[in-house]
Design a binder for these strands. Sequence first.
DNA 1: AACATTATGTAATAATATAACATTTAGAAG
DNA 2: CTTCTAAATGTTATATTATTACATAATGTT
Lengths: 132, 132
Amino acid sequence: MQKEHNLSKNQKIIFDLIDKSGGPMKAYSILFNVQKKGIKAPLQVYRALDKLVEIGKIHKIESRNAFIACQNSSCQVSKATAFSICESCENVSEISNLKLSKYLSNFSDNSGMKYSKYNLEFFGLCKKCKSK
Amino acid sequence: MQKEHNLSKNQKIIFDLIDKSGGPMKAYSILFNVQKKGIKAPLQVYRALDKLVEIGKIHKIESRNAFIACQNSSCQVSKATAFSICESCENVSEISNLKLSKYLSNFSDNSGMKYSKYNLEFFGLCKKCKSK
DNA sequence: AACATTATGTAATAATATAACATTTAGAAG
DNA sequence: CTTCTAAATGTTATATTATTACATAATGTT
């Protein structure tokens, strides 16, 4: 069960925007979109983003400097994320594949490192873009 | 076998610096370090980095905006990369694990996407930092 | 030699992200 | 319900990362 976090005003505005967009959004595009709601400075956006990432409501797509709403309701915190990214249309979706997440969460090598988190990004062409 | 690319002057200067550093380096830190060799502008650095990434001599650590020399001589191009990152000391190493790379290269789901590339970043504490 | 491709040089600027400081709000503890 | 603390907000300035645009030079190919 996902713990219910009471989002603050700015956090809620920004989460709702990203969630409704259905895809990845960049920080300054978020800023532009929430200025009418009184959020005027980059830092206000980044602070909300940081918190939303921390509690697992959104994830950062590192290769794109963009943020997407978590599409996996069972994901309490962002400690094991996997995405598929179309290099043509830039569509992003979160992969929820139990076998994959188990495999990666249990991965260990001989480095002596204990892995507590991972992020995986797959790249390719989506169905639509392939057939063009 | 890795194809021998004849690196240009700037590419060679920048690759040698990253390679000798033994770890990840950031673009503007690279710039600072090569100014005495006549490379004066960010763009000169980014152009060399782009090319070096393209031919697989270096990889970008997306979560850190940093670049590291490829530690895997059989890696011709950067299409399948995995790294372990210590969140305390920021040490990064490239993981070369045949089982892992096979598993990920062959991964497919029901999205209809054909994955041609992936990047995986594991986070945790390295041996040294764990014992502190 | 002519051409195409790749690399370089330079200046300006765009895009992404954080530091520092003051104030306010929301919860928890008494 | 008041005192305390942690979290969130507001604001300005600035740091960091990366690209656009345009001119020139070097390299490789036919």
